[in-house]
Write a protein that binds this DNA or RNA. Structure first.
Length: 975
DNA sequence: AGCGAGACTTGGAAAAATTTTG
DNA sequence: CAAAATTTTTCCAAGTCTCGCT
């Protein structure tokens, strides 16, 4: 550029800064700023500097901006605008406390904040509530109010923006009255509320069920000449949908037209959903036409709502027609939509072709490289196989031809290559994919503490010392006492020590010096002040920041485990044959990176080394992988976080599949019952296995290698794991499952199953498989014949979720929130028990129980005393002084008071006893696993909405983030 | 059909953070 | 306010299931 004679302008630099900063190259950006004057031959001014700070802050580098700002390396004196930018930067990072520090500094140094400064800070404080639904709103509201007060004291009037910010918080906090107060305050001060202001208040009122008040505001708004937006109306419509107020919704819809407010796409979608759920298809039709006319829609959501609505009302014919239309308009129906329809369209699936979903057929046709005419023929032949049920003959006929027609159209539109939004490549997961790679563990830092061998200090190289330390720090885990662990550790360590090394025998090793050193280090860390610790944490966060995020098709997504596992000793579960083996350090040349084509490939963090390979595979979702050094047949992957769209989508798909099973379950159960006596041994075993999986929520049970812990699942059960309890129909089941967790259960089963198991066991020795003709592949192949996509694990998801749904549906009115939460936890516990989710007994459990028992004894003592006094008072004698009393004279001890006290004490005893029982029961039960993996979050969210339980009582921060996709579920949702 | 590679979900323990208690 | 108890987060092991090959 320089050579071409063009002088770079400051504008050029602006773009350069932006690019550099966007790419995370903040140092370079600052360097460039430094160099700017030399190139532009123009003095950089204050504005350039503010721009630099602003850009840094915008991209989340508030800390760098702070350094630049505080460094005073530049000639510019701070001013209000610069401070405002800094405050903005820290607020953006969601660190209002730092922002406030800047604010105070600014005021102290005599710079007058303006309304922008205040709004930025206010927004920062209030933003918290958006990001962290669990925050205490009261505190935030108080803070915001204080800031508003301070503003006024300083003579700065809050403007519309300020009010909008606080109104938003009230909205989130469900504080309709505060919302209304603020609104009138605004009017008093002569600030004209905008559409957004009014909408905020209305939203708050609606979501709190105060529809009348909301309507009043709406009228006021119109009277004041502010035209409501579709969003304003949507607040009402959403509420009407929840309450099934068809008439009100209709009335409002008319009113909207009168006010000449054009509904938005989401208005239409809400209404379509509302009325199709209420089975008012004529109204749906009207709305649908309006929507088309207005040109706002339909989109894929509209179609999905309509199609499901029609489907639920068993109007297959129409629903198929809309599938056609949808595809024709370039929207790909969800697999689940097609599966449902297809299911309605088929009966017994004897023909293999019959089990294909429309999509599968479509793909099949695409794969076969046929001419168009040939494809058509084949498709028609396939459709002809569709079975027509006796009950649904009329609908079915049309359906078959509709589907046939749909497929034709797909082909047609394909060949014309129109604007189809279909996934062109099968299994394509992304188009663009950018990330900054992974973090390798830091190199080993030798400590030089010498261990003893045969009582003498020994020299160790850093490599040898590293492995010795790994063992030393595990001294007080139970691993360190296991012979297998020690044996494997010694074998691997000896290789590193070398043949000539003095250390030969484990029993002569004394690791205590290293252990003590390690304890000491740990203590030192504990001694750190809260401030120090915070600083350390911040530092780490800063380092990790660039690895924490990836961009998938332009969307920012959180990365999960971007840290490569550090070397260590393998800690297998149960009796794992490889426990104690050295888990090597992973070198970059073992790591394969997957990233979008053309994206900057993350640099290898170790100089002179390189990645094993860089791939651009868009059919997978991993960022990196390497071979598991402990088991070379397996891999370790780096994936996105649970909050990512990829994980969210597949989570949702999982639960939709389980819900689909609900429609099939009766048939499937009938199917396996029928085969309990099948003469074909494999079929019989499949049916019994399916029964156990369905009834007891067992896992499938894949085959395992000899070099893994010896655990089983359903298909791999050994004869000794299941015994028949004589003279009953009970089975005693006892085995080690996943993670070597013990499964123990004695259950009554179908007499035919009892008998069949007896037959399977006959003639087999201990160690042989109960289901010898079976493996998970065969089982799943069979299940797939009964329902598209069905596998063994779907039963676990299905049974867990349906159990929660049923248990939560019991009547729980007239209870306070805490009691409702107990109801939820109890249901959760039942599911955890069903899935056999266990945990090891908390260390302090025994002591805790003792304490509770102690309390009960004490309370019983008090009770005795009270009862004695009651007797005495009744007989007219003076009451005795009781231990538990406060020593005041007991003149006014009437029998009534004593009786009340007795009642209270009894309640207390009962409560403590309940606590004890609960604690005992939960001692070894883990509730978390089912919550994260098996319970459809929509059940919980909908339940919370119905019973006005804040969702934060049920889901913690990470679960809320993970289940973001489920939060807007309709309150009437049932699994 | 059977097998091994590959990819993604599920799972408990331990560490860290937060809340309660004394 | 520190210690204890409890909850949340991190870590990584251990499953399930699919796909492509023979």
């Amino acid at each position: 550029m320089d050579q071409l004679g063009d002088k770079p302008t400051s504008n050029t630099f602006d773009i350069l800064f932006r690019r550099l900063i966007a790419a995370g190259l903040t140092r370079q950006a600052i360097q460039a700023f430094d160099d700017m004057e030399r190139f532009t031959k123009r003095e950089t001014d204050r504005e350039d500097f503010v721009d630099l700070l602003d850009t840094l802050c915008k991209y989340g580098y508030a800390k760098v901006a702070t350094e630049v700002f505080n460094g005073r390396k530049f000639k510019f004196e701070p001013d209000t605008q610069m401070y405002t930018v800094m405050i903005y930067g820290w607020c953006k990072l969601n660190r209002p406390e730092v922002a406030e520090k800047f604010f105070r500094e600014m005021v102290d140094r005599g710079f007058e904040p303006n309304v922008v400064t205040y709004n930025v800070l206010l927004n920062g404080i209030c933003r918290r509530t958006v990001l962290h639904p669990g925050t205490h709103f009261e505190g935030i509201i108080q803070k915001a109010e204080n800031l508003l007060d301070e503003m006024q004291k300083r003579g700065i009037e809050p403007d519309v923006t300020s009010y909008s910010i606080v109104l938003h918080v009230y909205n989130r906090a469900h504080k309709p009255d505060l919302s209304l107060d603020k609104l009138s305050l605004m009017k008093e001060k002569g600030i004209f509320p905008t559409v957004a202001t009014y909408t905020s208040v209305i939203k708050c009122l609606c979501s709190c069920g105060r529809l009348e008040d909301a309507e009043e505001i709406l009228n006021e708004m119109v009277a004041n000449g502010v035209s409501p937006s579709p969003t304003t109306f949507n607040c009402f419509f959403k509420e009407f949908q929840g309450r099934k107020h068809a008439d009100n919704a209709l009335k409002l819809y008319k009113k909207m037209g009168d006010l000449s407010c054009t509904p938005s796409l989401s208005t239409y979608n809400i209404l379509v959903g509302t009325f199709s759920r209420l089975n008012k298809m004529d109204i749906v039709q009207e709305i649908w036409n309006d929507m088309k006319e207005s040109g706002a829609g339909p989109d894929s959501d509209s179609y999905a709502l309509l199609i499901h609505g029609l489907y639920e009302k068993r109007r297959w014919e129409e629903s198929c027609e809309f599938v056609l239309e949808m595809i024709e308009n370039g929207f790909l129906p969800q697999n689940i939509t097609l599966e449902k329809l297809y299911k309605a369209n088929t009966d017994d699936q004897d023909d293999e072709e019959d089990n294909l979903t429309l999509i599968e057929r479509k793909e099949k046709l695409e794969e076969d490289n046929l001419t168009l005419a040939e494809r058509k023929e084949k498709l028609e032949a396939a459709s002809a196989l569709d079975r027509i049920s006796k009950t649904k003959i009329a609908a079915k006929k049309v359906t078959s031809s509709s589907l046939k027609c749909a497929s034709k159209k797909i082909i047609k539109s394909r060949s014309k290559s129109t604007n189809l939004h279909l996934n062109s490549g099968a299994g394509k997961k992304w188009t663009t994919f950018a990330h900054n790679g992974i973090v390798l563990p830091p190199p080993y830092k030798p400590h030089g503490v010498k261990m003893l061998y045969n009582g003498e200090q020994v020299e160790l190289t850093p490599e040898q010392e590293e492995v010795a330390t790994m063992f030393a720090v595990m001294k007080d885990t139970e691993f360190a006492a296991k012979p297998k662990f020690i044996e494997n550790f010694m074998n691997d360590w000896r290789v590193i020590l070398g043949k000539e090394h003095v250390i030969k025998k484990f029993h002569l090793c004394d690791f205590t010096p290293i252990y003590d050193w390690h304890q000491n280090e740990k203590d030192k860390k504990k001694q750190l002040s809260a401030l120090e610790r915070k600083a350390l944490k911040e530092e780490k966060l800063k380092e990790d920041e660039r690895y924490m995020w990836a961009f998938v098709d332009g969307k920012k997504e959180k990365v999960g485990n971007f840290r490569v596992e550090p070397p260590g000793l393998f800690r297998g579960r149960g009796e794992h044959p490889k426990m104690g083996k050295l888990k090597r350090r992973i070198r970059p040349d073992e790591i394969t990176i997957n990233i979008g084509k053309g994206e900057p490939v993350p640099e290898c963090p170790i100089p002179n080394e390189r990645w094993k390979e860089v791939k651009h595979d868009n059919t997978v979702t991993w960022l990196a992988f390497w071979k598991n050094p402990i088991d070379p047949k397996a891999f370790k992957y780096v994936f996105l976080d649970d909050t990512s769209s990829w994980k969210g989508q597949s989570d949702k798909d999982k639960y939709e599949k389980a819900r689909l099973l609900k429609d099939y379950i009766l048939d499937i159960r009938a199917n396996y019952r029928k085969d309990f006596r099948n003469k074909d041994l494999m079929k019989q075993q499949i049916s019994v296995a399916a029964y156990l999986i369905d009834m007891l929520a067992l896992r499938a049970g894949n085959e395992k290698d000899d070099d893994e812990a010896d655990t089983v699942g359903c298909c791999t059960l050994k004869v000794e794991n299941v015994s028949l309890v004589p003279q009953t129909n009970k089975l005693e089941i006892n085995f080690l499952g996943k993670d070597s967790i013990k499964y123990e259960n004695t259950v009554e089963v179908d007499p035919l199953v009892y008998k069949a198991i007896g037959e399977f066991k006959k003639g087999k020795n201990t160690g042989e498989e109960l289901f010898d003709k079976l493996d998970t592949y065969k089982l799943n192949a069979h299940l797939k014949e009964l329902m598209p996509g069905l596998t063994a694990k779907v039963f676990r998801t299905y049974n867990a979720s349906i159990t929660l749904d049923k248990l939560l549906n019991s009547e729980i009115m007239n209870r306070n929130v805490a009691e409702k939460v107990v109801v939820y936890n109890r249901a959760n516990k039942e599911v955890a028990k069903l899935c056999n989710h266990q945990r090891s007994e908390p260390k302090s459990h025994g002591a805790q129980m003792l304490k509770l028992r102690d309390n009960i004894v004490k309370l019983k003592g008090v009770l005795d005393g009270l009862e004695t006094n009651l007797h005495r008072v009744r007989k007219g004698k003076a009451p005795l002084q009781l231990d538990a009393d406060d020593g005041k004279p007991k003149k006014n001890f009437t029998p009534e008071i004593l009786q009340r006290k007795i009642k209270l004490t009894l309640d207390k005893i009962e409560k403590t006893e309940r606590d004890m029982d609960l604690k005992k029961e939960l001692k070894t039960t883990a509730l978390g696993t089912s919550k994260t993996n098996y319970l459809d979050p929509r059940i919980s969210v909908a339940w919370c909405k119905r019973h006005e339980v804040p969702i934060e009582k049920i889901f913690n921060k990470s679960l809320l983030a993970k289940f973001a996709w489920a939060m807007d579920v309709d309150p009437s949702f049932r699994f």
